[in-house]
Nucleic acid binder design. Structure first.
Lengths: 347, 347
DNA sequence: GTAAAATGTGCAATCGATTGCATATTAAGA
DNA sequence: TCTTAATATGCAATCGATTGCACATTTTAC
């Protein structure tokens, strides 16, 4: 049970003071080369391990960053977390992962707990239920910087990183139109966080810009899970005239539709083309493979991390909190489920 | 810029001492009901937020747990992390996520950094390269408890949680045999961490126990990624007599094989049956859906978390570190890729 | 009514590292 | 030789919360 050595132990070992040891370890230029070497040697010899907690207390800086996500095991969030960790790791910061479970009260508690843990900042994706942002403002008032990613809000004056959901949707729908689709349905969510609103807007605008009539019957709201996609698809099949394409705001929804279509022997993409959203890992393994919109999750993690640390370093000088949106351009991944043009006349 | 209030502020506000405030906030029974109420009221009024760092320094307990995984975005690890966080969250602990990237030196650095951060314990899955465990032993010597999950080792006297890879493999292969397969190939890894060794052993034993001859040509080593699976499958197709089933130690490997088989118009499972390992999210979306072995990742997270905290609480009393293996029974998920029996004579 | 026990607070040290302000030593300059 | 400027360390306070011990006040017991 090795009793931990402190700078005081090193100090008395060398007959100097803790101040000198501290300075030596921190490469303070006021320490002579000799003592520095002696300290380093003694530190190794005594198996010294710095106590970050003590330093954090004194410095008011913990080198910890809180990261709040709805759940850690969704592919998208897991990937962003990975990206953030990579950046943080580079700079000797550690990240504390917290899950809000999309629960408003949980999110409040979490934010408070992170404040108590004295994190140097918070990177978060807002919970679906969250409409009031006082808990985040409380952080800002304490001088704890925040960066939001993916699920953001204009109600907080903080830096944000997101993808251009509008653009992604617009491209996806334009692609379908260029593949010859004329009746394109859309699966969306009743939850009006901006990402779904934007995807819907992109869908609508793409139709308009290409002169394709908008039909309210073709816009279906659901939770966008697999089963929801199935239900929505079944509902569409009841229509007098079924759509010739579906743009789902989630890959799971699209997958549900794909299952139903296959069960009914409706050909994809010849009779109905499909496009999802998120580029979930499974989309490249389905049959047909699923066209989808990649959200650049790992990149988003990197960008968010960099933005956060840039801000952290600059804000020592500047006082005021900036608000700057970084919008990543999503990438349409065209796969078999929407590629009709190359199959001309094959059905 | 609300300057943070401390217990001293509360104390002087109420004309008492910080000791009393501290005791009141911690529900120390030696404090009268009146002062306790007054303190709580003042705390709220002054917007007091406890400083965990200060408490951690004094108590030698940070309420932080380090979690080390190879990468945070693999579905399995993401899910375990989620489970651990759920348990930790319940007990007011926070988890620090670190990625070792399967890099031995990185792992060493990470372990050290966590020690410096004064985490109360570490939960880890060992990197693939790691053969020497001194860095972990150093933690133990400092009194920092460790629990390992999934990728474990007998060289550390710590509690471990894993699935019964042997059993999972045994069941998978037995299942194939019961479906009438007689020439079963196995995709394994050259990396000899125990999980792959155990899966290989399960494969071998299942063959033996059912009187199916073992053929070294049918055991292929690779990194078990998608492309590796493709290569291995192509290699198998070169054999004079191709196998009628493949048990891959990874879902990706199995998926690669599936792709090749479909390209060659070889029927699954009629001509070649497939079983993977891990129950990756995509396996239920392939066509045919992929039979696989579920690793109970979320459960593993929960169990690991509970085991860890049980140990943390009990060890105050006991001195010696225990070593106890918790082995979860994996679950064979039978899907289309191996279900020949229900298709008798259909080809 | 007095000793003994219980109750409620305060004092001061502690956890380990950091740092502004001396102080001591040495080197440089006149 | 003596002053001035570097150079290298030490002193002591600080970050904020916790806690053993001491002390004062009340309550209980006989």
């Amino acid at each position: 049970m090795a009793t931990k050595t402190t700078i005081h132990d090193i100090a008395s070992f060398l007959n100097i003071t803790a101040s000198t040891v501290s300075r030596a370890l921190n490469n303070n230029p006021r320490i002579s080369e000799n003592t520095r070497k002696a300290v380093l040697k003694a530190a190794k010899q005594l198996n010294y391990q710095p106590n970050n907690i003590a330093a954090a207390l004194r410095n008011g800086k913990s080198n910890l960053i809180g990261v709040i996500v709805p759940t850690a095991d969704r592919a998208f969030f897991a990937s962003v977390v990975r990206g953030i960790e990579e950046v943080a790791n580079e700079l000797d910061y550690k990240i504390i992962i917290c899950q809000s479970y999309d629960d408003y009260n949980k999110e409040i508690q979490t934010v408070e707990a992170l404040a108590n843990a004295r994190v140097d900042g918070v990177i978060a994706s807002i919970g679906k239920e969250t409409l009031n942002f006082e808990h985040y403002n409380a952080l800002l008032n304490k001088g704890i910087p925040i960066v939001l990613f993916d699920r953001t809000t204009d109600q907080l004056a903080v830096n944000q990183v997101m993808i251009d959901d509008y653009e992604g949707a617009y491209e996806a729908v334009s692609h379908l139109i260029s593949e010859g689709c004329k009746r394109i349905a859309h699966f969306t969510s009743p939850i009006k966080i901006s990402i779904y609103k934007e995807r819907l807007r992109g869908y609508t605008d793409a139709l308009k810009d290409h002169g394709v009539p908008f039909d309210q019957d073709l816009v279906l709201e659901s939770n966008l899970q697999l089963e929801d996609g199935r239900q929505s698809m079944l509902q569409l099949l009841e229509l007098r005239e079924i759509p010739d394409a579906i743009f789902s705001a989630s890959d799971y929804g699209a997958m549900g539709a794909m299952q139903v279509l296959k069960e009914k022997n409706i050909k994809i993409p010849q009779q109905v083309a499909l496009v999802g959203f998120a580029n979930e890992p499974f989309t490249s393994f389905t049959d047909p493979t699923l066209t989808t919109v990649d959200q650049l999750s790992l990149t988003m993690g990197h960008v968010t991390g960099k933005l956060f640390f840039d801000q952290l370093n600059s804000q020592d000088k500047n006082g005021p909190q900036r608000m700057q949106k970084t919008i990543l351009k999503p990438k349409l991944i065209v796969r078999q489920s929407s590629l009709r043009s190359s199959l001309e006349g094959s059905y």
